[in-house]
Design a protein around this nucleic acid. Sequence first.
RNA 1: GGCGGGGUAGCCAAGUGGUAAGGCCGGGCUCUGCAAAAGCCCCAUGCGACGGUUCGAUUCCGUCCCCCGCCUCCA
Length: 470
Amino acid sequence: MATVQILNTLSRELESLEPREGQGKTLSLYTCGPTVYAYAHIGNFRAYVFEDLLQRHLQERGFTVRRVMNLTDVDDKTIRGAHDAGVALADYTRPFKEAFFQDLKTLRLLTAEAYPAATDPEQIALMIAMIGTLMERGHAYQAEDGSIYFRIASFPGYGKLGRVDLANQRSSQRVASDEYDKEAVADFALWKAWVPEDGAVGWESPWGKGRPGWHIECSAMATGLLGETIDIHCGGVDNIFPHHEAEIAQCECVGAKPFVRYWMHCAHLMVEGSKMAKSAGNFFTLRDLLDKGWTGREIRYALISVHYRGALNFTMDGLAAARAALGRLDAWWERLTETAGSEMEEETPDLTTEGFFAALDDDLNISSALAVLFETLRESNRKMDQTDEGTLTPAQARGLLNWLARVDGVLALEPEATATIPPEVEELATARAAARAAKEWKKSDEIRDQIAALGWIVKDTKDGQKITKS
RNA sequence: GGCGGGGUAGCCAAGUGGUAAGGCCGGGCUCUGCAAAAGCCCCAUGCGACGGUUCGAUUCCGUCCCCCGCCUCCA
């Protein structure tokens, strides 16, 4: 059995993914979710698609994956958004949460075991309890503004994930302005005391009314739902520091040792060669792309086909390339299905197909995996082109289809269910077939135009007409 | 300034101390009444630059150039 190797951000080394003692083949996976103050953008989805690929491949390798993803539904941006819209916080975030779940479906992302939200009462209670423990142990303190801060000086391990030496940091201007109450500039908020701008948003706590800090949210949810030690924790590289660093500090000071065994981070994406930014006009939500006519699976392909640790340059050309590649895959799939016919016995063709999974074992080397897929496509097509003894047998085609089903368990790129052809189009097609049989080409072409006018495309193949939606 | 990722054909992108996967585009051919689709074939003397080690380097070492990210709440 091959082992799955991944690059652990903590060690910066390739490590074999092994479950904990006594956990059988179960791995827990915590993934940082969206802040629901707006529609998630294509950069966010790059991370989610990477995590989905990871989960699916682990499952293919026989692991049971317990995954949790959080929803941040209270922070400065959501509060400001609700205030500007003149609605309650929950009413402001609800549509974005719903949209998020729709988007997950569009991109064919597996559903997590739980999607805890920061404002869930039980999560707030967990966070308060955790902060209480940190206070008792001297890892946190209340500042003059009433907020609770984590005392970084009390945790020597701080900086180990991001390899950050706090003594050697350039002081940035945005730190200096409002953080006047803290013992040290790097100390981060665990509990933010209520201020008038918070309006109706706030929860009672032993330290007064307020709301949780961002970092404590993930710490509480992760350990609360998955246990003190999490196997894998993922996110974007920008979360390494300070977010994940803070999570480690909080959890390990409360008792989890270690908090996370394997950290994995994906690189950012760029759009048309530059950093995605609203001001640059290259900022896309998933919806924006759907409106431009791209499909979820095309976007999924474009996002999944570049190794997660490399910067991904997301472009319209890239989407077009995804569309073309998928079209080729679809045609092949269909051809294999026809060749296999009703044959159910499978025969393993003489092609090195297992390399697909072996490539993914190597830190999710998707490029090599896709290379195996396309090489298999070409070689089997070559066989199907041959009419004599070199041809692909139905049993071999069945074998390839079974392999393809496993491959697609990981890639999730199967064609959309074909739309049913309306009766009037069906009738026209029959008439056209008759005209073609009679070699009445002009009539045949006219009917083709009529069918096109109804939104369908006719293609003549050696096996007769094929009708697809335009 | 510190830390990290990266520079491979028109575009995207693997990879290896021994002579460059794969995808898209492009070209050719096959199929075909036409069209479209599809299939097959072809497409990097070279892997940011310059040195060095080596029988041999894109791959190792050194120097340099460029791009991107993080440095306190952005995937």
